[in-house]
Design a protein around this nucleic acid. Structure first.
Lengths: 198, 198, 198, 198
DNA sequence: TATGAATGAGCATTCATTCAT
DNA sequence: GATGAATGAATGCTCATTCAT
């Protein structure tokens, strides 16, 4: 088969996932019909099943794709060699999330994926892996911050990474559900919490 | 006269919701069939539709019930007159969430409700109301903490309430998805974060 | 049982039939639900089944009642001893039908009964009996008209009675479906047809 | 390309309508189940819904089809250029109706359609249109008869067309319900009515 | 190869009827 | 008696998937 294969195939797959994501953002995984995905993608039913074995397969691909794109921007943050104060990093990350939520469907579908993980163990595996990536990125960033003295030497890096990931999830949910959270004040609140309790 | 008393009617309704919650915890809202709910509840198809007009109605009742029960314990915390350090309160609340998640279906279904809010405006309204309640409880607690000097005078109470709610949501999601978060270390991390960056 | 029984029972039965007729005029026999009849009658489900064994029974009672009331006025016409010209009688009868159709549900439900006769042999029997009554009335009237010289001596009384009944049915259907037929011009047309063709 | 040609699609549609007509002749519109239609047509449930959006759609298509076929033969009668005596034409038309009723389901279903017009405004529109066609055909025939002197010059063509349509409906109903009407004597009775009343 | 019509099990919901109170 | 909540088989319809063309 000399036709331009793998590259073209991947492109079509992505185009299909993009169409499916638009549908899922509107109706959720299980109220989205294959018929809707087929119409949105402009492909034929047969063609779709040439790229994915089943609707479940598409759901899994969507989950992976969408969570991957949530993570993508975060990775960029960590790549930099210069240490960043964790809360500054958080503000930046929350800003990226707010941007994604304002402009597109990804965060809405990410929430769907978190819910779906509760009933499909494969999706659960994908989600776990993606969340682990985010935590790893945070751990790296936090370590560098601690080395730079931007974080107390006694800080529990693992727990803090969990807290940072949790902040992202909590912020996103409130952004989507309440629509009244702002990256700057949200991140700043962590600072005000500071001296408290001691 | 075989007329149902309001009390009996409410009891049956709750019994039905409880059965439906068990189903939804397993399969999510839209993969749960009425047939499954009927079997789980031990009622007949017709009887179920005597209590709820449609599956959608049940979904909404579940969302309200489940989010209400997530909130219930929190309210208890705020009722106390004695000021509590916010992070101590958080640890306590996360502990309650972990307990609920370990012992029952409520938190799993709460996640479903958050996702469903993205496609059913009625559920979105219910969720907004319930989340607002949680924030209000936090605001009250935070105000009292600030008055007692357990919180910096400059603290942004509204933003902090958002952060506290977000912490609950982020903790719960990670509890369900990763299974490795612990109330004590999670809450403690907030403290270690505190001084940082300044 | 010293309670006023038979009389009261009949009254309640008629009240029930009246309610059911209102429903059937709106939705036809088979789109009318027992629930609707129960609501319209103000009785309880159990009570209704005390008067009629089944929905089918009600349908049959309605058919009989409604066709009986279509016939009632016709009988009055024939009772008179004085001979009437057939076409004058027809105009009068069509006028009565138009009045019934304008003011109430009976003719609409009569059409339902004719249709139902195609699938329920019991209703077919009721309809046959009622139509036979109408024909008999016409036969009597036509005989008297022939004796009085208002009708040709060679007239086929049986066939003419069929034609008169047919005229009533055809007029009613057009009144209900087209709404543009008038008793006077409709009857008059029979006269203009008369001499023709010979 | 397995695309259906318009021709094939229409053929399948008609086959489906034919199957549905057989069911409706037996049980009426609303006691005919989709399941019965599906079985009778030999198609699958899904296929049926590829041709018609709903059961209501099928009912409407049946109404149009059946009333159209009642009309078809009438049109043929009018096409002829030679004037026909109205009562001769009537006898011929009643003969066609009797043939249709003896051999097939069409007239039984036509009666269903007239009844259904009382509750579905779309069916009512279809019926009105089809009845108007019949009247138009009669008007044309009557005009030609009047020109040829087969009808009194003073005859009210519109009213006579109503009477002719009414005769067809009344004859058909009696054919189906009583089974004792004959085209020849029925038409002849109109003649015997002739001199009467003057 | 790509198509889209066909499949049919499965879905949410209805409703005539019953019977415990 | 009278009530109306409960029953559950049956209904109209959907939709993930297949496969003849």
């Amino acid at each position: 088969m000399p036709r331009l294969t793998e590259q073209r195939r991947t492109a079509r797959r992505n185009q299909l996932i993009a169409a499916a994501v638009r549908c899922v953002a509107r109706e959720g995984f299980h109220k989205t019909t294959m018929s809707a995905v087929i119409a949105e993608s402009g492909m034929s039913a047969g063609a779709v099943y040439g790229y994915f074995a089943s609707k479940n397969d598409i759901i899994r691909a969507i989950a992976d794709s969408v969570l991957g794109r949530m993570t993508a921007n975060l990775a960029r943050l960590t790549e930099g060699a210069t240490p960043v104060a964790p809360i500054d990093a958080l503000e930046s990350v929350l800003g990226q999330i707010a941007d994604l939520a304002r402009d597109g469907d990804i965060p809405r579908v990410a929430v769907q994926a978190w819910a779906e993980a509760g009933r499909d163990e494969v999706v659960a595996g994908i989600v776990r892996e993606r969340l682990a990536q985010v935590r790893n990125a945070w751990r790296e960033l936090l370590l560098r911050a601690r080395e730079a003295g931007l974080l107390s030497a006694a800080a529990d890096i693992d727990a803090l990474a969990q807290v940072m990931l949790g902040a992202m999830m909590g912020f996103l949910q409130q952004y989507l559900l309440m629509g009244d959270v702002r990256p700057d004040s949200y991140a700043a609140a962590y600072r005000s919490l500071a001296g408290a309790g001691e």
